[in-house]
Design a protein around this nucleic acid. Structure first.
Lengths: 387, 387
DNA sequence: TTACTTTGTTTAGTAGACAAACAAAGTTTT
DNA sequence: AAAACTTTGTTTGTCTACTAAACAAAGTAA
């Protein structure tokens, strides 16, 4: 049976503790008096809850601030260094890892190339990377609080990678492996969902309720954030907007459908067409565009139109506040922007366009890895709320 | 500033009162002891809360039940007749209205044709219909608790109809008009959203978390229910899946885009093609199909394929538990079902298809009107929670 | 020096949930 | 029919977290 949570005094305390911690997280540094005023909680209540939080190392008294005509306040901040999180972006040809504090600030960073895809070899590299970051971690009350991993594939609710076509993996229970190896909670999710989280918390989507992150790389993946929360469908994996068909009678896709968006607007689609012009990778194409190569510029324009066609569909379906273009294709922003904007402008419903903005990932190639770290931080916060 | 709700004892009482009421609503008739066991709340707590609910006429003691070896229990039920709600389905050529009790059970029903679309004439008909239903209402402690209306157009958060193309209306502040006229809260929403609510609460979608209702009539409207709640986008109006493009280079749509789904799969699309066969309305087509007219059967098949193409996109985007086909096209179920199923089966991602089911509206032509009534009931419950 | 401010703690009171005891009203056993 | 047991729902006393108000501490302003 689902946990029937009945209301009692413990619940009240949890709620109010959360409110206090939230206030400190958002508006630090704050005095107890300011927290009381801001939250509406009584000063006595705030004092008591703050003491608990200090005892739990979640809040830090950083000493007295300036007086404004009376007793000096004791300033409180969130104790970001009470513990550390590790975030991993497992790419098709690289592993990127970061160590962050509990506010998501990057403390250490590692990156290593990935040449082979055998799962045991990759897992060895992965654990080595995590171990390195863990070894670099300073002393702290909570130590390592968790690990988050973004992977190029479909993950189920148990943290098992069901299918990762570009690694030729299927059914790898990564969460269990990492939790056993490191003894801390691990969260595994798709790279696009991780990127969406990263941009939502630390990047272009901060404070925005409805955000769709479009990860344009080899294929197209998407992370859907509605009402500030990641949306996952009935079975736990949604966000396959790359396989939204934009051409019912179009090219057949390996997924079984026809005319899937990613066949027209991904980096792969770009490179297929670029091959005919003699270019082999995105960097070369961007270089050529910068040199004024008209054919390449026209190619970017066409890809931009296809991207825009799919984004217009997204806008009509979700009526989001923003769509954020991330992953490798984000680097082509100067060469696709105009075409994308024009296509969205002409194809999306006028009523939906009013508030809508199209953004490009602010965290560059770190959207996913920072989002991955955030999973661990978020899980830690959830755990703290229940204890 | 947003209402900072801090936790205190009043909040605890509200939460527990809700839990008790919810238990009664879902599993009536129940004794106090059963409620205590089921919710985990103490027997004393339940007794006290139940007494409050009885005093507020929300729960009714229907006398003693059978003993199972001890004192006879007093059975409690939700007092469905403590008040009444009115639901209205404002169609393009009809007005349908129902009076329901607080469980949504239909008590009275009215329907009248609508021949003219001038807003003042329609409003007169509308208020007359409501007044008639109100006059038919029995005595009760709360009387009329609210009015819900489903309309064929786009509605903003203030209950103003921004645009109703098939009525040639724009900017009609219907909520204000009805609230002033009848002195009770009114809720106005799009017909597809109302239909989605109706099927979710009383029809094919009961108990299902992620449900997309596709209203196939003159155009295609959609109501999106995610995690049991109606999803509305950033600006408050999403669900324009009728304008999801399934053919990027397809026919131009009045919305500005090309190849919109509703151009291929709506009743209008069907009738356009049926005109060439000499049929003028859906009933005639269904009749012909029943007589075995091969051309008509083939036409239904083609429309079914187009419906399926769009539904496959919906499945790939939202990974819902169910899609429910409603409104007039539902009546063609026997003639389109096979084609829709086959198309969805071949075009939707295998992983998403596993749990997915395609259903047809269980409430027939009353999905929207019953959903509309539910808006009023739901608003009443929300109000009761805060008092 | 005096008056005023601001911060944060202490004190006393309140409300709601809970466990345990109990009363009421049954059924089952002997 | 009496005794024993069961089940329901209320009463009683305890506990905890919040609140208001008083207060102590530590500052500024005049």
């Amino acid at each position: 049976m689902a946990t029937k949570k009945t209301g009692d005094l413990a619940l009240v305390k949890k709620i109010n503790t959360s409110i206090v911690l939230e206030a400190v997280l958002r508006h630090a540094p704050l005095s107890r008096a300011q927290i009381s005023e801001r939250t509406g909680l009584n000063k006595a209540t705030v004092s008591s809850l703050v003491q608990d939080l200090i005892d739990r190392h979640l809040v830090l008294d950083i000493g007295q601030g300036e007086s404004s005509g009376g007793r000096k306040p004791f300033l409180l901040v969130f104790h970001a260094r009470a513990g550390y999180a590790i975030g991993i972006d497992l790419g098709v040809n690289y592993i990127r890892g970061i160590l962050t504090d509990l506010e998501g600030v990057v403390i250490e960073e590692r990156e290593r190339p990935l040449n082979r895809h055998e799962s045991d070899i990759v897992l060895e590299q992965l654990t080595a990377c995590i171990q390195e970051l863990k070894d670099a971690m300073p002393e702290s009350p909570y130590g390592l609080v968790g690990i988050g991993v973004g992977v190029p594939g479909i993950v189920n609710g148990e943290g098992t990678i069901l299918f990762a076509p570009n690694l030729s993996w299927s059914h790898i229970p990564l969460r269990g492996i990492l939790e056993e190896r490191f003894g801390v909670p691990a969260t595994i999710d798709n790279e696009a969902n991780a990127g969406a989280q990263g941009e939502q918390k630390y990047g272009a989507g901060r404070g925005i309720a409805n955000q769709i992150y479009v990860s344009v790389g080899i294929g197209i993946g998407t992370g859907i954030i509605l009402n500030k929360e990641l949306y996952k469908g009935a079975a736990g994996f949604s966000g396959e907007l790359g396989h939204l068909s934009i051409e019912a009678e179009g090219r057949p896709c390996r997924c079984g459908n026809f005319g899937c968006w990613e066949l027209y607007a991904s980096e792969n689609a770009l490179l297929e067409q670029a091959a005919q012009l003699g270019y082999g990778d995105l960097d070369a194409l961007i270089g050529a565009a910068e040199q004024g190569d008209e054919e390449v510029i026209a190619l970017f324009h066409r890809i931009g139109e296809c991207l825009g066609t799919g984004i217009a569909n997204i806008v009509n379906v979700f009526n989001p506040d923003v769509v954020i273009i991330g992953n490798r294709m984000r680097r082509a922003e100067p060469w696709i922007r105009a075409a994308v904007d024009a296509t969205v402008g002409s194809r999306a419903l006028a009523l939906h366009r009013e508030r809508f903005r199209l953004l490009y990932a602010e965290l560059g190639d770190k959207s996913a890895v920072r989002g991955a770290a955030h999973y661990a931080i978020s899980a830690f916060h959830d755990k703290m709320k229940d204890a």
